[in-house]
Each structure stands twice: as structure tokens, then as C-alpha cells.
């Protein structure tokens, strides 16, 4: 009897969501082994029209001051929405940024944004990008004015958000979020193994075991990050002080958000400033290149030794495993 009632309540609550769960590609769906959802979806229900509008905005250089740089200039789909060419990313007027553009995937599960975690809600990240002098150097209010002058956009905003007369910034930001929220990467070989439809090679499996014991304290869980801030030993004095920029605390000097390693085979260059071109270089860093400083993560200084001990063969196997995190469906999905 209790079960019946429970079922009824569930049916009712499901009916709150408009669309069919299975059929609709514009519904946020993800595997059960993903971390919990962080974005409050009820404040921004995703629709096809909202997603399409967000996608268009993401690819539109009119969001920048001189109409030259779109979000997609620095976040390129074929490389999991990172920036393959520039080191670091280049914005308007060929201004060079100070940081390397991170991947945009699985944003719905991320608690804090930017490499220093300064921004705490996905909706607000584009405000930072648009107003950042080194990225798009535009003012949010001017972007909104520009959009209001474009008939096509007025129509598309109305399609996405019924009864909207004048475009305002929150609607633009919600649309961009709808697009970014659906950028879920969960079809890598790693996922297929978990789902029982693929198998690791022996070397990949060995790599996974090594990874789990040497790297997974920070790069943990199904998204390969604990979302913490750590100094992984790149420098002993810091040009970019990372998390300390936000917290102004010496104990955060040189700490950066642990990045997800999904699609890592596609997202070179690596680290906050894009200093490494290949995964071999990254592994060599962890093996031989770790530099000491008061904020260095303790995992990287065991028994008085700096770095992580790995043989050539072990490092190679870890890279083989990391390559199972590439999600080809994600980077070629025509909907994105």
C-alpha cells in the first residue's frame, strides 16, 4: 500500500517535467555514477529553443566589443571546448590572456568555476568572460543592447522564453547555461566499460590501477576531479597565484582547481598556462619536475621525495588509460 502511494507521488512529480525522459535530447541526462547535480535546474528548465539560442550566442562574435571573438573561439568543440592553438588563449585585439581555456563539459556537476573558483554559479561565468578586458572586453549591458537590435534574436528569445518583450541579461545568461549544461560527456570508452559494453586492454587496465593509486586522490570519481584547489608543483614562485587571487590567503598560493581529465587526450596544451603540449610532458612533470614550495600538495612530497614515482612503462600505461577518457561522440555530436 505504501509503495502504491509512493509510486503515485512519483508519477505526479515526474509529470512536472514536460518532456519525455528517453526521447528528448534536450533533457539533461547522465549516468548514475556521476556526482550529484549542482546546477539548480528548476530555475532554468532546459528546452530545445533555449538550448539552440544558447548555442547561437556561444558561437556569436557579436558578444565581444569589436564583434571579433565568440565564446567558441576559445572553447572549440572538436577539442572538447578547449583552446587548442593559443597558449594562453587570445581574446579581442589579439590580447593574450593569462590562462589556458578549460574544457566546457559536465558543467552541471561543477560547484565552482574558473581555475581559481572565483565564480560560484554557471550563469555568471559568461559575465566574467564578456567583461574581461583580455577576453571579450565588452560590457554586459552593451551586449544586451546589441541583441535587442537584431530581429532574429528577438524572435529566438521569444521562442525560448515566452512573453519576453525586451531581451535582458538574465535571459541571455540562462540560455548560455542551457547550452553548456547539456554538454555532458559520458560516452568515452571508460563509460562503456562501466556500462559493460566494452573492455579495457590489459595495458589500459594496468594504467587504470596505477592511476587509481597515484593520481585519484585529486583526479577522483567519474569526472576525475574532486573540485578542490591544489598546487601540483609546477613552480616554486608564482606568476599566477591561482586560488590566492580570490582568497588572498598565502596558504592558497599557486593552487588551481583540479581539472577534470575527461577528453584529456584532446585538450592539449595542459595546465593553467598551457605549458605542456603532451601527456608525456605532464607525466614527466609529475615524475621528475615537481618543484617544492610551502603550498605544494602533500601527495607530491612523500617520504621527503618530490613527485610521484613511476617507471617509463607505468607512465605509458597511465597515458593509455587516460586515452580511454576521450569521448568521440561528445566532440562530434551534431546537436552541440
Amino acid at each position: 500500500m505504501k509503495n502504491l502511494l509512493f509510486t503515485i507521488i512519483i508519477i505526479f512529480s515526474i509529470s512536472c517535467q514536460k518532456d519525455d525522459v528517453v526521447e528528448n535530447p534536450y533533457q539533461l541526462s547522465y549516468p548514475a555514477y556521476f556526482p550529484e547535480l549542482k546546477y539548480p535546474l528548476d530555475t532554468n528548465p532546459i528546452t530545445k529553443a533555449g538550448f539552440e539560442l544558447g548555442k547561437k550566442l556561444f558561437n556569436d562574435p557579436r558578444l565581444s566589443i569589436d564583434n571579433s571573438v565568440a565564446c567558441s573561439n576559445c572553447h572549440v568543440k572538436s577539442v572538447a571546448f578547449t583552446d587548442p592553438q593559443h597558449n594562453p588563449s587570445v581574446g579581442v585585439f589579439e590580447r593574450s590572456g593569462t590562462r589556458n581555456a578549460p574544457m566546457i563539459a559536465n558543467m552541471a556537476f561543477q560547484p565552482e568555476f574558473l581555475l581559481d573558483g572565483g565564480v560560484s554559479h554557471l550563469d555568471f561565468v559568461p559575465v566574467f568572460a564578456i567583461e574581461n578586458q583580455r577576453e571579450m572586453a565588452e560590457s554586459l549591458v552593451h551586449v544586451v543592447t546589441k541583441l535587442n537590435k537584431i530581429d532574429e534574436y528577438r524572435q529566438e528569445f521569444r521562442n525560448a522564453f515566452p512573453n519576453l518583450d525586451t531581451i535582458t541579461s538574465p535571459f541571455m545568461l540562462k540560455a548560455l547555461s542551457q547550452y553548456m549544461l547539456l554538454l555532458v560527456s559520458d560516452e568515452a570508452k571508460y563509460d562503456h566499460v562501466l556500462q559493460g559494453i566494452a573492455q579495457y586492454t590489459q595495458d589500459e587496465l594496468a594504467g587504470k590501477t596505477l592511476f587509481d593509486s597515484k593520481c585519484a586522490t585529486c583526479h577522483s570519481g567519474a569526472l576525475f576531479t574532486n573540485y578542490g584547489f591544489f598546487n601540483n608543483g609546477l613552480d616554486s614562485s608564482f606568476e599566477d597565484i591561482g586560488r590566492a587571487k580570490i582568497t588572498e590567503s598565502d596558504s592558497d598560493l599557486g593552487k588551481f582547481k583540479v581539472p577534470s581529465l575527461r577528453n584529456i587526450g584532446r585538450t592539449a596544451p595542459y595546465m593553467h598556462d598551457g605549458r605542456f603540449e603532451t601527456l608525456e610532458e605532464v607525466l614527466n612533470h609529475y615524475r621528475f619536475g615537481v618543484k617544492d614550495s610551502p603550498t605544494l600538495a602533500q601527495e607530491l612530497r612523500t617520504a621527503g621525495q618530490l613527485g610521484i614515482e613511476l617507471s617509463d612503462d607505468e607512465a605509458e600505461k597511465i597515458i593509455l588509460f587516460l586515452n580511454t577518457l576521450t569521448d568521440y561522440e561528445f566532440i562530434s555530436n551534431p546537436i552541440f
Binding site: P40, T43, N44, S120, H121, L122, D123, F124, V127, S139, L140, V141, V143, V144, T168, S169, P170, F171, M172, L173, K174, S177
Partner: peptide, 15 residues
């Protein structure tokens, strides 16, 4: 007032 994300009215970050 912040965790709802982008807001309108007197909290519109553009204006």
C-alpha cells in the same frame, strides 16, 4: 539572492 543564478530587475547584472 545569488544561488538562483542570473536574475532580472534590480539584480540584473547588466544594469
Amino acid at each position: 539572492g545569488v544561488t538562483e543564478g542570473a536574475a532580472g530587475g534590480i539584480l540584473d547584472p547588466a544594469t
